[in-house]
């Protein structure tokens, strides 16, 4: 199985992020598995083509930041910057990121085990 490849056009990435390597808002709110969705109530005509694709992609439901990157074929770093802008502008919303793994998350681990046991 060969996953689809991402475009690695650095010049375009530089242009669409305005040369930034950090989102305008707090980076830590958008992790690989943060779930995002489009609000669907903002016009998209003024957005960059890549951002329009992100909004269209997420109109139907939630996807993780990593999945958005995979579908629009951009690196996660660039995707995060563009998604942060879209959250600032009200085009997208993010679910609260999942808790960072720590001993108190043992109940989540038990649920992961239960789920895996169902397919083993």
């Amino acid at each position: 199985m060969t996953p689809r490849r991402v475009r690695t056009d650095l010049v375009r990435q530089y242009v669409i992020t305005g040369g930034r390597n950090r989102p305008s808002r707090n980076t830590h709110t958008l992790e690989l598995v943060t779930l995002v969705t489009a609000t669907g109530d903002r016009p998209v005509a003024e957005l960059e083509p890549e951002q329009q694709r992100m909004v269209r992609l997420c109109l139907g439901g939630y996807l993780s930041v990593a999945e958005v990157a995979g579908h629009v074929r951009l690196p996660v770093s660039v995707t995060t910057i563009l998604l942060a802008d879209l959250i600032d502008s009200g085009h997208m919303v993010a679910r609260k990121p999942p808790p960072v793994a720590r001993p108190t998350d043992l109940d989540v681990l038990e649920k992961v085990l239960d789920g895996l046991n169902n397919i083993a």
Partner: peptide
């Protein structure tokens, strides 16, 4: 279907800046 993303790292460990 598994998805793929790629990060291109420049020399100093920067992303695309």
């Amino acid at each position: 279907e598994p998805l793929r993303t790629e990060e291109v790292m420049t020399q100093a460990g920067a992303l695309v800046d």
